[in-house]
Design a protein around this nucleic acid. Structure first.
Length: 196
DNA sequence: CGAATGATATACT
DNA sequence: GTATATCATTCGA
């Protein structure tokens, strides 16, 4: 049960890191309450030449600034005016790479997650999509740019095992506008039942 | 299937 | 500075 160290995040290959995050544990401490989840789905966003990335074409703005930080920090932004989406920034400083955490399986703080998500969400869907996952874990844009090493959000290795053959690779969701890049196999997911 | 909902990027005046 | 189109989505009809 160790917190992932800086050198996990600062590696070059964001796609590899995206795959490696499957089975790791995302932990948030918000309002003095700890909630955590096993990561079951991620997507890689690969720098300034990835049309699907917010940083495509080196679009460095107030919003995307956290993506340009050194790996090991967060990038949280508001999508569709409603949903806060949580990303892990990777790579070296100046290279805007990030991994979107799309889904998870509840581990700790189940009651709090249920409260945050509201009555209509069944347990099986508590963390089944990126907006829902952030909501259940209490993650908002207020936490963008914060450290994953010693901040309110961290990622730990609890020793959960996922057979490589159980990790499904495919194109990313909701990026049709990205042309050919929309078909890149940058999405990774595993059935929660295949995490031991 | 489509409304909800607001920050943001971009293109104007 | 102001206008407007767009968006790494979700939920309910």
């Amino acid at each position: 049960m160790t917190t992932l160290s800086k050198n996990f995040y600062t590696r070059d290959d964001v796609v590899k890191i995206s795959r490696a995050l499957i089975g790791k544990v995302l932990v948030s401490t918000v309002g003095g309450i700890v909630t955590s989840a096993i990561i079951t789905e991620t997507e890689a966003y690969a720098g300034i030449r990835d049309r699907a990335s917010h940083a495509y074409g080196d679009r460095r703005t107030a919003r995307t600034e956290p993506m340009y930080a050194e790996g090991g920090t967060t990038y949280v932004y508001l999508c569709y005016g409603i949903h806060h989406l949580f990303n892990v920034v990777t790579g070296r400083a100046g290279a805007p790479n990030a991994v979107l955490v799309r889904a998870g399986a509840p581990l700790q703080g189940l009651d709090t997650m249920r409260e945050r998500r509201g009555r209509s969400a069944p347990d099986s869907r508590l963390l089944s999509a990126p907006g829902s996952l952030a909501k259940a874990l209490g993650i908002t844009t207020a936490l963008t740019g914060t450290s994953l090493i010693d901040g309110a959000i961290r990622i730990e290795n609890h020793g959960f095992r996922v057979a490589p053959s159980k990790i499904v690779t495919g194109p990313r969701v909701g990026v049709d506008y990205a042309g050919a890049d929309a078909r890149l196999p940058y999405r990774f997911r595993v059935d929660p039942a295949d995490v031991r």
